[in-house]
Every structure is written in C-alpha cells, then in structure tokens.
Write a protein that binds this DNA or RNA. Structure first.
Length: 569
RNA sequence: GGCGGUGUAGCUCAGUUGGUUAGAGCAGCGGAAUCAUAAUCCGCGUGUCCGGGGUUCGAGUCCCUGCACCGCCA
C-alpha cells in the first residue's frame, strides 16, 4: 500500500485565520489527503499550531491571560474551526508540546555535535520597564530619515527606510511605551546554514518536477548576494522551548528559548509523535528512513512566504543532524488570495475570517469556491459577486439541481426506488466513455496536485450528467417508452452516487448527504465507470434529499459585502 | 534602493520545451426543452495577448527597454 505523508504549514496561534490563510495551505492539503485516502493510500496528514514567540506573548498579555492558557484556548478555537471546515488532520498538534520540546532540543544537540552551531554575542535593545529584550519591530520612535514618529526598529513604514533600532530618535517600547531603554549585550546560538549551502543546493537540484515558484525562491536565497546566511535560532524570551543540548543543559544559554523559526517545522515530526502517543501508533516509520519511511512520499503545502523555511531552513536542520530523517519529496506552494481589490489582512481585520465564513455558509461552499480558484499560478481575487455566481452556478444549478431533477422525476414516475428494465442504448455507452475519460483526466490532475484543473474536470463531469439527461429526455420518453425511461433514470440515479464519491475531496458534506440519500453502502473509488454506474441495482430504495445547496441571494451577498468591507469588530 | 512577480475577452483565470484560425468558466445575446433549486441543454467571442524595439521562417511564449500594479528585503 502506498504511503503518503502530508503536512500543511502550521498557522500561528495568534488569532483566527482568514480565508487567504486557509486556501494557502490547509485546504489544499486536506483535498489531497482526502484524495489519497480515497485512492487507497495509507495517509498521515499533519498540522498544528505554531505557538511560540513574541506575538503570542503580547496577545496573551492583551487578553490578560498567562501565555500557556491563552495558547491552549486558541488551539481549541483553531481546532474547532478546522473541524468546521472538515479538515481531516490525522493529528492537529501544538508546537508547545513536550514532544516538540524534546525533538527541538535533540536537533539542536545533534547540530551542535556536527559543528553547525556557533555562539555569537550581539547588542540588543532591552526595556527595563518591560523586563525584557525587545525584538527590532517592537521598538518604536521617530525616523531619522523622514521624521515619521511611529517608525519601527526594523523599518520606517512611512519612508520604507531600513532601520536599526539604535537609529531611532526618542525610542520607546512598543509594548509598554516606556522610554527606559538600554542596549545590552546578549549571546545567541546561530545555525551555520552557510556551511550547508552546497548540500542544500545539491538537494534542491535533485528534486524533479517542483513548481517554479518553489525552486526559484530557494535558489534566490541560496545564491543571492553573499549566499545563504547563518541564522540566529535563539531568543531572550520566556515562552518557547528552553535551550538545551539534547537532554543536557547548555551552559551560557540559561533563560533563553529557541526561536519559533527553528522549532516550528520540527513540530511536523513532533505532531506525529503526539499522534503516536495518543493512539499507540508508530511515528518513526513516517519520519525515519531507517525505520520504514524510505517508501513514504512526503508532500508539503504552504503559502509562498513559507517556502524559504521549508526549502532551506528545515532541510538544514534535518540534513545537518546527520541522522536519516525523511525530507520533503514534493513541495506545493501557493500565491496569495486577495480580497475585493486589496489584501486580506489579519492586522487590519480585512476580509473574511474562518469563524465568520462558517457563520454565514456551510463549509462546502467555501471549500468549492476556494479550491476551484486556488492561487496556483498567480495571485487570485475574491469578490462577493464572483463567489455568489460561481457557487450558485456550480453547486446549486449544475450539481445540486441535477440531484433534485433526477430523484424527483424518479419519485413521480417510478417511486423512490431504482427502476428496472430497459436499456440506455448508445447514449448510455457514450456517457460512460465520456466519464471514463473525464475521470482519468481528473485523477491525473489530482495526482499532479493541479487543483484548479482538477476542479474544472470534476465540474465537467457534473455537466456531462446534465447533458445526458437533456439529450435522453426521460420525461418525454416516458410517455411512449417507459422501459427506456426507466433505464435512463436508473443510470442518472447511479450518477448521483458516482458524483458523490469523486466529489468528496472537494465537498465532503454534500457528498455524504448524496450517499446517504441514495442509501449507498459502499463508496469505493470507481475503477470501472461502467460497473460503478450499475452499483445501485434495480429495486434499490433511495430517498429524495433536501436541497443540497441553497442559492446565495442578492440580499445576502450585499449584506455580506457590506459587513466584511471594513475592519473586523 | 535591491530582488522577484504580475499585466491575455466585460469579470476570474488557462495557455506545455516559441509553430496551424489565442482558450475555459462566469456575465451578455439568440434558440430548444419543461423532469428540476425560474434550475438544464444548444449556438454566438475581429481580444493592439500593457506599450516600443529585437532574435527567428515563425513569439502571448525568448532578449532589451518603457509603463502600471503588487510582493519580499530574513
């Protein structure tokens, strides 16, 4: 049995994600996971929350809660939303888990033993009032270049000049506003990525068929300027994985934690470890090529902003450890989804967020639109009018109405049972051939993770059913030749079951309802379309389902467009 | 400023290593049908493929340049 390991970029714990985040990794990853399972693979689909770092600490402080408590609550919120969107993770972990602490410290120890970690001293801004070092962007002040009084320590948003915190005039803490700042010396660990450049370069070159977006970003970072830079992997924070060398203390690093950048991707492995601890499964056979993972195909999903970490940083950790860890086989990256002429923005609350989306419509509506418009080759635009017309047309009119017209016609002429007798003749044969070809193309696109093309092919199969019905015209044929009409309706009823199965990765809820109404027991992926379209035999009882997809009205669309136009309240 | 991306029908987007009359869905127009969620099906596109040069027998597809928009700069 083929084995597929799938990971989605892990969302940051700080707040609810918007639809742009969802379509940028979790949703396409889920589509692929569901598809691979349907095709019979053994699948391990992993995601988690990324919990460490300053933003989490600040969000917790703002909420008036201990950071651990805040993260636990937000994890549950994100978990519930993931469930709401039917994201079929085998495990949704937490980067703050004990498993990740242990693994992160393990990797640091191995990298140090390999001579790939170096201690370096640096000078950073320390806020006495806040009792902590301040990351560059948490130091605010007046820009020495343009005089903007809210410039950040890393860059002035007004004139875009790159800054160093010490450049700022009248610097203050962005956290407390305190001006009681001083520059202190601190030591940090650096991962010597530069020494791994050639290995990483060769590793990238060894990958075949990766998207250009993926390799071009990796190559740029490898060769741009002075090449791949060494990277600090520790911070002076409380919330995080304590710096240790494996299970041993790390002298001089007391009170420091690993930077999120370092521990977040390791959580992919740790989350699988969490899964194993919870279920009694074996996580190492997914991650250690010396313990069974050599026949695993590992596919990652992420937005383009995450590509450098997954093509360089994380592989540097894995390769540098000198241990036989599984590295990614195929990396699928995405562009951005824009919102009505601008960007989705978490900080500005612009766009539709996951909780709001589920409040107004079932998950399948969002899944279908987002996946069929996923920004694979370029940024894509979300507009309410497009969303309304596309969803109404594809789901309500083409698929949903097909189910309605077939089941209701059958009920009125033959009752709620698959009618017997007759033959569909050449038209039936032609339909089977068309669907066989369509299914083959659909599978090819899904195998290649060409999601938009797959969606278009799936839709074409739905259309083919309507075309068949229109041409066969059982409502007319019935008047003179009820036997033939019976065969036509029998074929159409079986089509509903067929659609339910092949559509399930995109719209799992509607798929389940279709199967339930047809009382279809088995729902194995069709290998022979002709046979699949005879699965429901004459005499098989079914039920006319409720409307599968209610249409989005103009009033609703206008209401939502207004409601989500501004800042989230 | 540096780097990168994008600019194709009213809208959202496809267009493989350059090769016959540049495509899809939606919207729009016309028709058929009436089983169905006023749902379906058929037919209809002369688009300066952002502008300007160039390479080539041949460029949306490669090179240079200009413009516009966007992103990134650890």
């Amino acid at each position: 049995m083929a084995r597929t390991l799938i990971t989605s970029a892990i969302p940051y714990i700080n707040g609810i994600k918007h639809l742009g985040n969802l379509i940028g990794s979790q949703l396409p990853a889920d589509l692929y996971a569901r598809y691979r399972r349907a095709r019979g693979d053994e699948v391990m689909f992993i995601c988690a929350t990324d919990e460490h770092g300053t933003p989490a600490e600040l969000a917790a402080a703002k909420a008036g809660k201990p950071v651990a408590e805040y993260c636990a609550e937000m994890w549950q919120v994100q978990k519930d939303l993931a469930d709401g969107f039917r994201l079929s993770f085998d495990h949704f972990g937490r980067s703050s888990s004990p498993q990740n602490h242990r693994l992160t410290q393990h990797f640091a120890g191995r990298l140090d033993a390999a001579g790939l970690i170096e201690e370096r001293a640096s000078r950073q801004v320390y806020s006495v009032a806040d009792n902590r070092f301040l990351p560059d962007r948490y130091v605010e002040g007046t820009c020495p270049n343009c005089g903007y009084d809210r410039a950040r320590g890393d860059q002035c948003e007004n004139c875009t000049k790159q800054l160093d915190p010490t450049d700022l005039i009248d610097p203050r803490s962005a956290i407390s506003g305190s001006t009681d700042l001083e520059v202190r010396e601190t030591k940090h660990l650096y991962l010597l990525q530069s020494r791994l450049r050639d290995r990483l370069d060769a590793w990238i070159d060894g990958q075949e068929g990766w998207p250009v977006l993926t390799t071009s970003i990796a190559k740029k970072w490898l060769h741009d300027g002075d090449g791949l830079q060494d990277r600090g992997i520790t911070r002076d924070l409380e919330w995080g994985v304590p710096v240790r060398k494996g299970d041993q203390p790390w002298p001089g690093m007391e009170g420091k934690v690993f930077y999120v950048w370092f521990d977040a991707p390791i959580e992919y492995i740790a989350a699988t470890n969490e899964w194993a601890d919870a279920t009694g499964g074996d996580w190492r056979r997914w991650w250690r090529t010396d313990e069974g993972a050599d026949d695993v195909r590992y596919v990652q999903f992420m937005g383009k902003d995450n590509v450098p970490f997954h093509t360089l940083s994380f592989p540097a950790t894995l390769l540098g450890s000198g241990e036989p860890w599984k590295t990614v086989d195929y990396l699928k990256s995405f562009n951005y989804l824009n919102y009505d002429g601008g960007q989705f923005s978490t900080s500005q609350g612009r766009g539709v967020f996951m909780d709001q989306a589920l409040e107004i419509l079932p998950a399948d509506y969002w899944r279908w639109w987002l996946l069929s418009h996923v920004p694979e080759t370029s940024d894509t635009e979300f507009t309410w009018t497009a969303f309304q017309t596309d969803v109404n047309k594809d789901l309500a009119d083409v698929l949903g109405n097909f189910v309605s017209r077939v089941t209701k016609f059958c009920r009125s002429k033959f009752g709620e049972v698959v009618p017997e007798g007759g033959s569909t003749g050449d038209a039936g044969v032609i339909l089977v051939r068309r669907l066989s070809e369509g299914l083959a193309r659909y599978e090819a696109h899904m195998d290649a993770i060409e999601i938009r093309k797959a969606a278009a092919e799936l839709r074409a199969m739905w259309v083919a059913g309507n075309e068949y019905l229109q041409e066969a015209g059982p409502w007319t044929v019935f008047k003179t030749d009820p036997e033939t009409a019976a065969a036509q309706v029998r074929l159409a009823l079986n089509l509903i079951r067929f659609y339910a199965i092949v559509s399930a990765p995109f719209i799992p809820d509607a798929s389940a309802r279709m199967l339930a109404s047809m009382r279809a027991g088995e729902a194995d992926w069709p290998t022979d379309v002709a046979a699949a379209l005879e699965a429901l035999p004459p005499g098989h009882a079914f039920e006319v389902p409720e409307v599968l997809f209610a249409k989005i009205t103009d009033e609703e669309r206008e209401d939502w467009a207004t409601r989500f136009s501004g800042t989230r309240t």
